[in-house]
Design a protein around this nucleic acid. Structure first.
Length: 153
DNA sequence: GCCAACGTTGGC
DNA sequence: GCCAACGTTGGC
């Protein structure tokens, strides 16, 4: 049984269209600087897990496509790049603090907006809809995954 | 741009 | 280990 996840991306950084245009339609999920989110990638994600690709911090936040986990976790190179906004001077190459997985597009979908998601009882348990939620990566239950996929058909 | 929620930092 | 100050997230 694969796992399921919701992963937030700011479309100004990486949008669903950027993912579609990327080499092999795959991108490294760089820039996670939160331990809970990192631990999900390191400890709980598996190759082939389903990903709801979510656009955040934009005019129309919501789910913009379906993707999947395309690698196991490996060190995020941007933490060692002084020119990167994700640079972490406290992280050492022999003990990388930040990891990420690769994410590969399955298909772009219609935008299932946050506004619409909030109206649907079947989605009401989703972590991303809970008040105060800020985590950029959250687990999704099989039932929630099925409910979202049904809405995107 | 506001601001509520939450994570991180660092003095003690 | 507590907790106040500070920084970040992200919808609105």
């Amino acid at each position: 049984m694969p796992g399921f996840w919701l992963m937030k991306s700011e479309p100004d950084e990486v949008s669903i269209d950027d993912l579609a245009r990327a080499s092999r339609q795959t991108v490294p999920w760089t820039g996670v600087r939160n331990y809970q989110a990192r631990n999900f990638m390191r400890d709980a994600m598996a190759l082939g897990d389903g990903v709801l690709f979510y656009h955040s911090s934009c005019a129309e936040p919501g789910i913009a496509g379906l993707a999947e986990v395309a690698s196991t976790a490996y060190p995020d190179a941007s933490q060692f790049d002084p020119a990167s906004k994700y640079h972490d001077p406290k992280s050492k190459p022999d003990a990388p603090r930040w990891l990420h997985v690769d994410v590969k597009l399955r298909r772009k979908t219609r935008l299932l907006s946050l506004r619409e998601m909030r109206t649907l009882p079947t989605l009401s348990t989703m972590r991303v809809l809970q008040p105060g939620n800020r985590l950029s990566i959250t687990p999704v239950t099989p039932a929630e995954w099925q409910a979202v996929c049904a809405l995107l058909d």
